[in-house]
């Protein structure tokens, strides 16, 4: 794998998991993570296709390139643990257990969607899997995630909450108010910063003073900064932090250095004015799916035909899911003013 150029954030603490031999269970875990990353990749490719062929209303913010973070973290969670997500949230939804057909239906504004078509790409909530919803306000869900952690602590359920956000959210005051309270009250919440380096179209070096880690460290919050492209690293870190949280040791801050292969949204095609093509290509040499596949093959834990089979199955599932959504009915007009009040 190629080393990223100097604009890559410092990989402080980016340790590899110990090179222990993998047991059967580990292999199953790795293949499950592989499958989930492929599912996100295939889903997002299809979303891009639906958008560019004018079959999808609105916009979408693709997660391609960042799959190891959502999957690595969510595979460390139980299904009743909570997450909050972002405008770039399809990956989190899938990683937390959402079905692609129902997600496509939501993206197309269809009645069968997770939110009955009322939420769309940026607002998918899947409470059955602990997903409290994607959020189109940058950093807007920090309080919600901490509130879910507060509930878990008060009700003694043992659940944890993960708050996903991009490095753009580091500009939002709510995040710091929430970190402060989470640490004061030892709430079981994990703040996962997906540092894809760009606040929309602006490099984070232009928007964030000081260090990223220093923000949480100032509150005394346990902080780790890792390589977000290596899912084994992400998953190991997430397991550690989840365990801490469940034991009552309080919140943590996990910075995952990553890269957004596509633009800010599907329509952001001409990107040269804010980031060089060479940088995009170099990061694509550190593709999270390839890194895991190489590890699985290299360690002889499985063989290429198994991975190919997974990919083919997922591709077919995604194609069927999109087809289902395209053919699904829109909501009845009478739905427009239901669910305003509970």
């Amino acid at each position: 794998m190629a080393k990223a150029k100097s604009s890559k954030p410092a990989g402080k603490g980016a340790g590899k998991p110990a090179g222990k031999p993998a047991g059967k269970e580990d292999v199953e875990d790795l293949l499950q993570m592989y499958e989930q990353m492929v599912r996100i990749r295939e889903f997002e490719d299809k979303v891009n296709e639906l958008y560019t062929s004018a079959k999808m209303p609105g916009l979408a913010h693709l997660y391609i390139g960042e799959e190891a973070i959502a999957v690595g973290v969510c595979e460390a969670l139980n299904s009743d643990d909570y997450i909050t997500s972002t405008h770039r949230g399809h990956g989190h939804c899938i990683a937390k257990g959402a079905a692609v057909d129902i997600m496509f239906a939501e993206l197309l504004g269809k009645a069968a969607g997770y939110c009955g078509g009322k939420g769309g790409s940026m607002h998918i909530a899947d409470q059955a899997n602990g997903n409290l919803g994607a959020n189109a306000i940058v950093g807007g869900s920090a309080g919600i995630a901490a509130g879910a952690a507060f509930s878990a602590k008060r009700l003694g359920t043992g659940q944890v909450a993960v708050c996903f956000f991009g490095e753009g959210a580091l500009g939002q005051g709510l995040l710091y108010e929430t970190m402060n309270m989470a640490q004061l009250w030892k709430l079981p919440v994990i703040f996962v910063c997906e540092n894809n380096m760009y606040n929309e179209y602006t490099h984070y070096n232009e928007t964030a003073a000081g260090t990223l880690a220093g923000r949480a460290e100032a509150f005394g919050i346990h902080t780790e900064e890792i390589d977000g492209q290596d899912i084994r690293v992400v998953n190991e870190a997430a397991k550690r932090l989840v365990e801490r949280a469940r034991k009552g040791e309080g919140p943590s801050f996990l910075i995952c250095n990553t890269y957004r292969y596509h633009g800010h949204h599907v329509g952001d095609i001409d990107r040269a004015y804010y980031r060089p093509k060479e940088e995009e290509l170099e990061w694509q040499q550190r593709d999270p799916i390839t890194i895991l596949a190489d590890w699985i093959i290299g360690q002889k834990l499985s063989d290429q035909s198994v991975l190919d089979h997974i990919q083919a199955d997922v591709r077919s599932e995604v194609a069927r899911g999109a087809e289902f959504a395209l053919n699904a009915p829109y909501p009845d007009p009478s739905e427009v003013d239901t669910n305003v009040y509970a």
Partner: peptide, 14 residues
């Protein structure tokens, strides 16, 4: 912060 925390807590059983 306390309003956001309230929203999240309300969504999850409080």
């Amino acid at each position: 912060g306390i309003t956001g925390l309230g929203v999240g807590a309300a969504m999850t059983g409080m």
